[in-house]
């Protein structure tokens, strides 16, 4: 523990935090006292408690497990709770802005409902019947690969940094988070549906140009592109782009999984922004 009792003398850090909403905003300067181990989320909380009680920030566990406190710190998508203040040069202001790929609600909070609606379109897990003894036998090696994807904490940093969403705003692109979910389902030893047509047409895997920003920002270290999206691209290619594979599958009459259909569910309710009297949003 190199920082044992050092650093108890208080130092101040400078931050620039975005304050504003859909109508506009700007970077406001703040100063906070630092203490050992302090993370950016601590600094934001400190500002909230002592300087700006109305500062909006989303957070839950403060341990890198829930994926709520996503933001951009010095332009890089990160979890605020896992970003140490000591990571940055002393004296240089640390810039904290909301995720820019999503509509802003207020300050550091964005509207990520797009992701929850996308999740609902994915045809759910559909297992084969249980084995005779009532279990499903799977070996650890069968599931190691997809357990990696299941580590996803849905912080949506990958969605935020993906240029297909961020810059090109493709609404028929599932984004890295949901491509790895589709990969999980496609590689699941028990699942019985073929989602590849959807992956190609509805979830737009072809838009991914594998530039790997999703993998760079993943706080769980999931190798999203190499282990998830590329294998999924290869599986789609097996079915739709590889003439030899296609003929071989016709000839061998290999067992075919039924094709999955896109789920169509109503969107979940969201607050309307029409004020309802009282002291609602002004």
């Amino acid at each position: 523990m190199d920082n044992g009792n050092a650093g108890t003398a208080s130092k101040t850090a400078k931050l620039r935090v975005f304050r504003g909403d859909a109508s506009g905003g700007k970077l406001e300067p703040y100063e906070v006292e630092t203490y050992p181990g302090m993370v950016v989320l601590d600094a934001i909380h400190d500002i909230q408690a002592k300087q700006e009680p109305t500062m909006a920030v989303r957070w839950n566990c403060k341990a890198g497990r829930c994926g709520s406190c996503s933001a951009e710190i010095n332009g890089k998508p990160r979890l605020m709770c896992m970003t140490r203040m000591s990571h940055y040069a002393e004296g240089e202001p640390i810039t904290v802005t909301p995720m820019r790929a999503f509509p802003i609600i207020r300050d550091l909070v964005t509207d990520v409902s797009h992701n929850f609606e996308m999740a609902k379109k994915i045809p759910p897990f559909t297992p084969r019947p249980r084995d005779a003894d009532g279990t499903w036998r799977m070996k650890q090696e069968d599931i190691d690969r997809i357990q990696e994807f299941r580590k996803c904490i849905e912080c949506f940093l990958c969605q935020d940094v993906c240029h297909v969403i961020r810059d090109h705003r493709k609404d028929t692109f599932a984004g890295p988070r949901f491509l790895i979910q589709l990969a999980t389902l496609d590689m699941h030893p028990l699942d019985t549906l073929d989602r590849r047509e959807l992956v190609k047409d509805e979830f737009g895997i072809g838009y991914c140009n594998i530039t790997r920003c999703c993998t760079e920002v993943c706080p769980e270290g999931i190798r999203i592109t190499d282990n998830g999206i590329i294998p999924l691209k290869e599986r789609v290619a097996d079915q739709y782009f590889d003439p030899i594979r296609w003929i071989a599958s016709k000839v061998s009459g290999e067992e075919k999984k039924p094709k999955a259909k896109l789920r169509v569910l109503p969107p979940d309710p969201r607050p309307t922004d029409v004020p309802a009297g009282g002291k609602d949003r002004r």
Binding site: T54, A56, D280
Partner: peptide
């Protein structure tokens, strides 16, 4: 006492 309005207001939630 809570300042501001009810639009994602942390102090209000607290």
């Amino acid at each position: 006492k809570v300042d501001g309005n009810r639009h994602y207001n942390a102090a209000f939630h607290q």
